[in-house]
């Protein structure tokens, strides 16, 4: 990933997450983020706009009363499709 991780970025994220860290901890987080970016590289070149296919996994298709639509189940988490969160995260917030 071509993203520069520095102490400033970590401080900004910590503020958004409503957490505080010492200078030493912030340096540790820089290393941690770099380590995780190596893990995230395993995603390869998959497109973020990858078209979600119509999943065929519909269970008990021939029995309407027991039918389970797999796709519907997952779409209950609009989080997954739209990046919209079911529980709004803390984001800095006002002082008072």
């Amino acid at each position: 990933m071509d993203i520069k991780v520095d102490k400033e970025l970590v401080r900004k994220i910590a503020d958004m997450a409503m957490l505080e860290f010492s200078e030493e901890e912030i340096e540790e987080f820089v290393s941690y983020f770099e380590e995780m970016f190596d893990v995230f590289d395993m995603l390869g070149d998959i497109s973020p706009d990858y078209e979600i296919p119509p999943l065929p996994a519909t269970l008990h298709e021939d029995e309407p009363e027991r039918r389970v639509d797999y796709h519907d189940l997952w779409m209950r988490f609009s989080l997954m499709k739209n990046g919209y969160l079911l529980v709004p995260p803390l984001r800095g917030g006002d002082e008072e």
Binding site: I3, I13, M16, I46, P48, P53, A57, M80, G83
Partner: peptide, 30 residues
């Protein structure tokens, strides 16, 4: 650690590079 990486992944500007790709990969695995 996990709160930090999660907050980062969802923050504006990085969603396409990280979170949305992760979701796409989830579907590919399915």
């Amino acid at each position: 650690r996990r709160i930090m990486i999660g907050t980062f992944a969802l923050s504006a500007g990085y969603q396409d590079a990280f979170y949305k790709k992760a979701v796409a990969m989830r579907y590919r695995i399915m």
